[in-house]
Amino acid sequence: MEKTDKIIPFSEVTKFHGHVCPGSALGYRVGEIAIHKLILPRAIDEELLAVVENDSCSLDAIQVVTGCTMGKGNLIFKDHGKQAYTFMNRKTGEAVRISLKDSIDSVDPEFAAARQEAFSNRATEEDKKEFERIKTRLSEKILDAPVEDLFKVERVEMEFPEEARIFKSVRCSKCGEMVAEHRARVENGKLVCIPCFHEYSRN
């Protein structure tokens, strides 16, 4: 399963993520495609920007392969529940969108049934071992499959978001904890954090 001929070996993803799974394999391929299409090494600061539309295991792989992270501000999460990923090169203005053509289960039809059995109340140790075997097999298939079999890859026109900014912190007047000023809310003329904010509603 090692991909030493690629940008970063898959073992680095596994080391970071903690285990091998179809999601991390998928994210590895996505990151690999993005770098090849945009002709970039791993991200230098915010030169490469990733917009991801799910919070699955694939995100760990994308961070390792591309260097895009939430902490640096060049990984933006949109909770759309879609296996779709858009990468932008700030230097060239190019952008590419990579989306999964079909369900991961379609790559290995035995996977869904094995997963359901392994997580059922009646699952035996043998069922769990079989699931791990099929999960590894599916991960290997994803790593080795031709790009066009798995993904739709297209050049897109995107408006680039501004680079990450550092905001001042202010103190919440209710809990006393510090909060970035752009996330603070005003309640009765005082600054409060989001958890302390009582949103007005007449419903």
Rank of each mutant, 00 (worst) to 15 (best):
T86V: 08
T86C: 03
F87D: 02
F87L: 07
F87S: 05
M88C: 06
M88H: 01
M88N: 05
N89L: 08
N89C: 07
N89M: 00
R90V: 05
R90Y: 09
R90W: 11
K91S: 12
K91G: 03
K91T: 04
K91Q: 13
T92P: 09
T92R: 09
T92N: 11
T92K: 15
T92I: 13
T92S: 14
T92A: 13
G93M: 06
G93V: 00
G93C: 08
G93R: 03
G93T: 07
E94V: 09
E94W: 05
E94S: 10
E94A: 05
A95V: 02
A95W: 01
V96T: 09
V96I: 10
R97D: 05
R97N: 11
R97F: 07
R97C: 00
R97A: 02
I98S: 02
I98G: 02
I98K: 01
I98T: 01
S99F: 02
L100T: 01
L100P: 00
L100C: 06
K101C: 10
K101S: 04
K101A: 13
K101I: 06
K101T: 04
K101L: 12
D102N: 15
D102A: 14
D102F: 12
S103D: 14
S103W: 10
S103T: 11
S103H: 13
I104N: 02
I104F: 00
I104K: 03
I104V: 10
I104A: 06
I104D: 04
I104H: 03
D105W: 00
D105F: 05
S106Y: 12
S106G: 07
S106Q: 08
S106K: 12
S106D: 07
S106V: 13
V107W: 05
V107K: 02
V107I: 15
V107Y: 07
V107F: 15
D108I: 08
D108E: 06
D108A: 10
D108P: 00
P109M: 09
P109F: 06
P109S: 10
P109L: 13
E110C: 05
F111H: 03
F111Y: 15
A112E: 15
A112D: 08
A112N: 10
A112C: 09
A112P: 04
A112L: 10
A113K: 12
A114D: 08
A114S: 14
A114I: 11
A114E: 02
A114N: 04
A114R: 04
R115V: 10
R115Y: 14
R115Q: 15
R115L: 11
Q116N: 09
E117A: 11
E117G: 00
E117T: 12
E117R: 15
A118L: 12
A118N: 13
A118F: 11
A118I: 05
A118P: 04
F119D: 00
F119S: 04
F119Y: 15
F119G: 01
S120D: 04
S120W: 14
N121P: 07
N121R: 13
N121W: 15
N121Q: 13
N121I: 06
N121G: 08
R122W: 01
R122P: 08
R122G: 14
R122K: 12
R122I: 13
R122T: 15
R122Y: 14
A123G: 03
A123H: 03
A123F: 01
A123R: 12
A123V: 08
T124G: 08
T124I: 05
T124R: 10
E125D: 11
E125Y: 06
E125L: 12
E125F: 09
E126K: 13
E126H: 13
